[in-house]
Nucleic acid binder design. Structure first.
Lengths: 341, 341
DNA sequence: CTGTTAGCGCATTCAC
DNA sequence: GTGAATGCGCTAACAG
């Protein structure tokens, strides 16, 4: 393999100057830079990453860590996430590493090892929870990270998020405007920050309309089709006063609700109205639901690019927080799954 | 961070000796080793990977490369694969890296970059095809790799595979024994080595029974539920002489076949018999098909551990090929999806 | 603009 | 058994 030394010999320059030319330093004559670049190309020079890392103290690698397999998100989402991140980090010359720990390991232990051994320069945090230990640890150790979501609405860390409180508020308000007053919400698992944000939006919309918050109508489940099915069966079949509308945390849940309603011989929106938030996952098309589903929508797939960019900036340092935070756009799409009562 | 130098100072030993003690060299007194180990633990010594890499010339990282996003396998399979590999490589102290290239890149270019920059010490190759360019490249450059499958039945490289020819032969023979003579095979996409192996097994079983090979009955499709559905609709509805039995490359395809048969108002096994190979994916349970599906089965999830082990051995070097190759066990499970004709 | 010097942390000669 | 010396390939002071 060609090294800097080889290049310097071939060019009659010092190793230092070759290094500077290659790294785009300003104090190199244009002519020299030309020559060096060309020689590098001809001799197929590729920098030795290990050496660079040793001297820079960085690994050039960022990672996504799962404590264990059961923590890995459901299928499509995982593919979207890993592929999207891998792709965009590559654009920033960062290696992307997936790390799945063992069941037995403590959550933070995995992070500690990765940080201490300088294996990773930065982390991607998914599904932040309230008082997230990972975030606390990385903060304390001053390790760069970017969060998909926020630790809190005013979090002082790099993140990409959507306005989840607004999403839930919007959906709830829409139903209220159509005359609904018994509105169920099949939300995600509690302690996830976005779930809490949505709960706030839901509660606020109800309060604004003078509707009492009924905790039996707000359920926390894993955001899967089967959970949606189970919960709506409960609503439809077993509840004394059946809700007239259901808000679903995502389209998977909505799918389950559709199936349950159909199985019960009821109809949407005739017997029950349904709305959801749509992450625009590849596998589900809320427009092709029958009837087409009214949703708030934001493309999850568009979050990876800013995430990668923000983490790259955090690692480079010197960027103001504002350039490492973004609230993605959300649109409200009215279709045919809501009836006026 | 604690370095070897710190340890040596604290212990009054030379850096060399500390290094030797930590790395389990034989020429270190037991007493010294004790002391060093203890000090390392107390001072929380963690070797600097970059330094180690620089001197060893290795990256300590292995990877799975996809040319681009469209090459990533369907959902569940991808999760199984990445999580399984990541987990078992960790046991061998190898970092696992997922790399998804850009659409525009040449297949080999990605590998070349990764090899030349010494980013990866070894590769995992999935879905080998006949005359696989990746395998050719890695061989030529003498880079360690392990294949899920084989380049050819007698391949001289590390691999984990099952006997795909035998699988297809077994399924076909079973149908023949039950009197079937028009047997369709919904196989995977051509050029994949396992698809060709299965085709051989299928053809051989037919030949042994004196049944002419009818190429219109052997179709190559992506191994998805929808493809299974489409192809069997073709068989059932449009074919002059409908096949009495269908062999499916996996349970996804079988699912599609079941749906098509049901949609056509026909029954399994009354109107058509169905068998499949079952990778025992988490999401599909062939036993709970209606009727329960007769299959050959092998657990895909059991392939990651040997794969990781074999690649680790290939990187370490000095292992005979036999210790880096394995044919996983396959069982035949007869259930209720085949009728005697 | 360019070259010299030094050192990142570690493992491996080679001596004793 | 142990230590001193050397170098992996690269970048960052420091001089000129």
């Amino acid at each position: 393999m060609t090294t800097l030394k080889d290049l310097s010999r071939a060019l009659g320059l010092s190793v230092t100057q070759v290094s500077r030319a290659l790294n785009g330093h300003s104090d190199v004559s244009a002519a020299t830079r030309e020559r060096v670049m060309e020689a590098a190309k001809i001799l197929n020079y590729i920098p030795n990453i290990a050496a660079r890392r040793l001297v820079s103290g960085r690994s050039g690698t960022v990672g996504l860590v799962f404590r264990n397999r059961s923590e890995v998100p459901p299928d499509t989402l995982f593919v979207e996430t890993t592929c999207g991140l891998s792709e965009f980090f590559a654009e920033h010359d960062l290696q992307f590493m997936l790390h799945v720990g063992r069941l037995t390991d403590d959550e933070i232990k995995v992070y500690r090892r990765l940080v201490d051994s300088r294996t990773l320069d930065g982390f991607v945090i998914l599904n932040p929870v309230v008082d997230d230990r990972r975030i606390a640890f990385l903060r304390e150790r001053e390790v760069p990270f970017v969060v998909h979501g926020r630790a809190a609405p005013d979090s002082a860390h790099p993140y990409f998020d959507i306005d989840n409180e607004e999403v839930a508020h919007r959906l709830t308000r829409h139903l209220i405007e159509r005359g609904h007053r018994r509105i169920a919400f099949i939300n995600g698992l509690r302690s996830l920050t976005f779930v809490e944000a949505r709960q706030r939006g839901y509660a606020r919309a109800l309060a604004e309309a003078g509707i009492a918050y009924d905790e039996t109508l707000h359920v926390a489940v894993e955001m899967t089709e089967s959970a949606g099915l189970v919960e709506s069966v409960r609503f439809v079949a077993h509840m004394a006063e059946r809700p007239t509308a259901v808000i679903c945390g995502n389209t998977r849940i909505a799918k389950g609700v559709y199936r349950a309603v159909e199985a019960a011989g009821l109809s949407i929106p005739g017997d029950v109205s349904v709305v959801a938030h749509d992450d625009l996952l590849f596998e589900f098309d809320s427009e092709r639901f029958n009837p087409p589903l009214t949703v708030t929508a934001s493309a999850l797939s568009e979050s990876w690019k800013p995430m990668a960019t923000f983490l790259a900036r955090a690692i480079d340092g010197g960027y103001p927080l504002a350039q490492m935070q973004e609230i993605g756009r959300t649109v409200f799409i009215e279709r045919a799954s809501v009836a006026t009562v």
